[in-house]
Nucleic acid binder design. Sequence first.
DNA 1: CTGAAAGCGCTTACAG
DNA 2: CTGAAAGCGCTTACAG
Lengths: 335, 335
Amino acid sequence: MTIKDIARLSGYGVSTVSRVLNGHPDVSETARKRVMAVVEEYHFQPNNNAKHLKLQKSSSIAVIIKGTQNMLFADILERIQALLRGYGEEAVFCYLDEDANEVTYAIQLCRERQPRGILFLGGDLSFFQEYFHQITIPCVLLTNTAQELKFENLSSVTTDDCAASDQVVEYLISKGHSKIGVLGGNMSSTQISYRRIVGCQQAFQRHRIPFNVQKQCEPCRYSMQEGYDSTKRLLMRNPDLTAIFAISDVIAIGAMRALHDLGRSVPKDISLVGFDGIDLSQYCIPSLTTIHQNSEQLAKKGVEILMQRIHYSHASTHKEIPFELVERESVCQIS
Amino acid sequence: MTIKDIARLSGYGVSTVSRVLNGHPDVSETARKRVMAVVEEYHFQPNNNAKHLKLQKSSSIAVIIKGTQNMLFADILERIQALLRGYGEEAVFCYLDEDANEVTYAIQLCRERQPRGILFLGGDLSFFQEYFHQITIPCVLLTNTAQELKFENLSSVTTDDCAASDQVVEYLISKGHSKIGVLGGNMSSTQISYRRIVGCQQAFQRHRIPFNVQKQCEPCRYSMQEGYDSTKRLLMRNPDLTAIFAISDVIAIGAMRALHDLGRSVPKDISLVGFDGIDLSQYCIPSLTTIHQNSEQLAKKGVEILMQRIHYSHASTHKEIPFELVERESVCQIS
DNA sequence: CTGAAAGCGCTTACAG
DNA sequence: CTGAAAGCGCTTACAG
């Protein structure tokens, strides 16, 4: 069943059928109705390969996910897929290692698949800086800001990581803590984690509490396993910590278990705060005090911006979504 | 840059270029070398739309995931993506609601995208029974068995759910439990959960311990939230339970929190066993005794079977992967 | 071993 | 408002 059959069956030419199918305005109401009747009767489905060959592009949106263990991404992902489906777009999902170069991967993808746009879930700004100029299609970076890169085809939506972390430390200080360790991310200034650490520094400075990044920060990947291991290293170096701020909930879950195995009870002996607000954070024991990122809005804004750009050539923008400190059971007032 | 340009640049015709690109044998070594030299020099990438239009198919493998909250699937998924990439295949991921009809969705997908094969992650046999005959491309069902359906293009790989559940109950009984509740799944005989419940029944019968499915089983979806809510319902009906078997780890995590909120300590007051062996099961507190399904093998076998079928027309098969009861901290010996 | 040519199913400029 | 025709980039039967 092709457009030709529909033409024959409806008594119109293929041009008219094509126009009806694509919602062009210059078709008579009669033609539209007759064609649609046949289309529906036969459940006709245009051949995408032919369409895209002709149009010189594919219809898919690529979604590149960095870090497979990050449960925040899993949550955002299913929302993105649902939204994209709502827009009638197809999505191609690509999982990359947390340390992989997502931009060179995207360049490769563009050559092979010619997607219409790309959604990056996580990303390292240094890769964008160096390679992104080779990409010409609309892109949106999620959970990191690309504002300063000033690429005209790269938007971003993120939360104010710096302010959120500042608030976490402020909160811990207000609970009497001053010996606070920070877990996760890495120190490169092009990573999300960097902005979170800067936020911590701000708060410490404001309160004139010394904070030795080298000593009190322990970098690690976004997984429970690494959260577990790094907690042990962090505590080895700083046995007197009364609170830990894990830069991601997944890391915090690993930390919680490590603390348990070390015989330190949360929050009685040591307080713990996460970041992200994944589902699990309210079910673990104790439930996790954390920064809730509105992943629903993150996904929605991201997809929206991409669609606006693709369909109406809107300029690129950089949005911020709100965050919220959710107090639960993992933090204790001391002294 | 098209195949025509390569032809011109290499001094051969388009037919020869095409043959080289597709590894056909009837090309001279000289031609192959000259063509490949040009292809590599220009980083030529054939247009997939044209290729598939001509070949009347797309190159992608569709992966249909049922239930977005199930962390077991997240794990399998990233493995599948990596494996498929290794085979040089593109993957299209589709997330469906746990209760959606994956088969009619697949039929739709076949019309729209013409995938070369489908991997189903989770599935309800009743949908397959009723609609699968409309699908003609190779398919593999993961985490449920399609053995009895006898479709010649539907393979499956699963673990022996019945034996695994039998072993869980056997284990709990050996620990002195006889008042055991079962959490999760639903009672329809075409669901994975059904075979798990049957396994439980077997064990109870063998030990002549009464087991009232209506009363002691509480169906629920595969999410922490539902695990949480159902636990409360189950306990309301059976306040004297000494152990709960959750048919999935995600459900167990929700159950653990519900028990905590109910003031019942795990495992001291009540024992808990999960199913799946997701990462989280070893980090939660207490860590979860569970049936570990080898998700690596599940993914590997699934993809392998599909590839064999697609490339060498192998017959459909139904494989079983091993399971293992992993003893951790959530079960207690009683009396 | 190689090439000219047909054709996959669509869109759209052009002519009416 | 409508249709005939060209062409998107590929593969392959056919002829040599």
